[in-house]
Simulated assay, not measured.
Amino acid sequence: MENTKNSSLSKIIPVMFCFFAMGFVDLVGIASNYVKQDLGLSDAQANIFPSLVFFWFLIFSVPTGMLMNRIGQRKTVLLSLMITFISLLLPIFGDGYMLMLVSFSLLGIGNALMQTSLNPLLSNIVRGDRLASSLTFGQFVKAIASFLAPFIAMWGATQVIPSLGLGWRVLFPIYMIIAVIAILLLNATQIEEEKEEGKPSTFGQCLALLGKPFILLCFLGIMCHVGIDVGANTTAPKILMERLGMSLYDATSATSFYFISRTFGCLLGTLILRLMSPKSFFGFSVIMMLVAMVGLFIFHDKTMIYTCIALIGFGNSNVFSVIFSQALLYLPGKKNEVSGLMIMGLFGGTVFPLAMGVASDAIGQNGAVAVMTIGVLYLLFFTFRIRK
């Protein structure tokens, strides 16, 4: 029994390093604010960056599910890490508009492959009722990378030796080194993968799974989750700058605070999901976010705004894990295809920021909050469809 536990741990550690690398995609929130400042962009123009990152989830997620049927989940994760490495290498050479567009595109493509393949890869190590809590722990590790990004960017903007010429972009080579470590660890780890039932699905057959009502509801739920996530970490500094006149440097702390709250929520959720039903905890989390959205409409006090940001971060921290595990358990014989569809739902990270950028340019940051609130209301509806 002890040897089995040690064997599982030796496999989980490299996978968790990959979850950390998965969190690199969240640097796009704070990076878009710095690029906006450096290049003098509008909200709508700056929000193209996070939207572009998540656009690739629409294109690559389902094909990645099919790719996994051919080369396996572990090799697909390794491929995703290589693409992520290249995306982090490019900004070292400059911060021009086109260069950053290419970098963020590759970051999105790599992350689409990673999120599609890494979650089902973990399900080969951890099974059954423990899957939701294990996925949540993976999200906790991912969130560590997310909340460190704004701190590293701030440190680079103010403290790094000027001769390096990187400034806030020092974030990219630091994360690039960690990506290399993840590649080496996973490459040295062998994981026995479950075989798919029947013949591998075609592209059309994968999309046809959306015809199952519960899978479609899960897909839309993932869209709303990531839309709220990207929207909150991108918009939080803008709310402080608009309402309190804070500088970008000072307001950046709101993004870090959001990710700290999300990280704490993931850690606590790992424990709570072992004691409470996913449906009850999901409903509690959504109510927290709804209260926070109402608060962001009415409060102009720094403490209250930060409290609302914390509630969104904590509430949204376990939404993905619950929805994803529900979808996998609903069709256990089609893990690769279901994973591809669920990760395609991360396209919500494109739809929401674009809508929020247009709304905020028109009526201020309350417009962005209104768009996020629509997503929260859908998740409230979804709560009643979760199986106990």
Rank of each mutant, 00 (worst) to 15 (best):
I12R: 05
P14L: 10
L52H: 01
L67T: 05
A153G: 02
T252W: 02
L328W: 03
L99E: 03
I144Q: 01
E193Y: 06
S51D: 08
I305H: 02
V77H: 02
K279M: 12
I125D: 10
G138I: 04
G108R: 00
G295M: 05
I13Q: 08
D129V: 12
M288H: 00
N187C: 09
L39C: 03
F140M: 13
L248I: 06
L377S: 08
F151Y: 13
L328K: 06
S317L: 08
Q159F: 10
F299P: 02
Q190W: 00
C206K: 00
G211W: 06
I152W: 08
L67P: 01
A208V: 05
S8Q: 15
V53I: 12
N111Y: 06
L329N: 14
S339L: 09
L311F: 13
A292H: 07
V294A: 15
D95Q: 14
I343S: 13
T373D: 04
A368W: 09
Q159R: 15
Y330K: 12
L78N: 04
V226Y: 00
R74G: 09
V358L: 15
G94F: 06
V160N: 02
Y330W: 13
G348L: 09
Q37L: 13
L113H: 07
I109M: 15
I312D: 07
L268N: 01
R387D: 13
F147I: 01
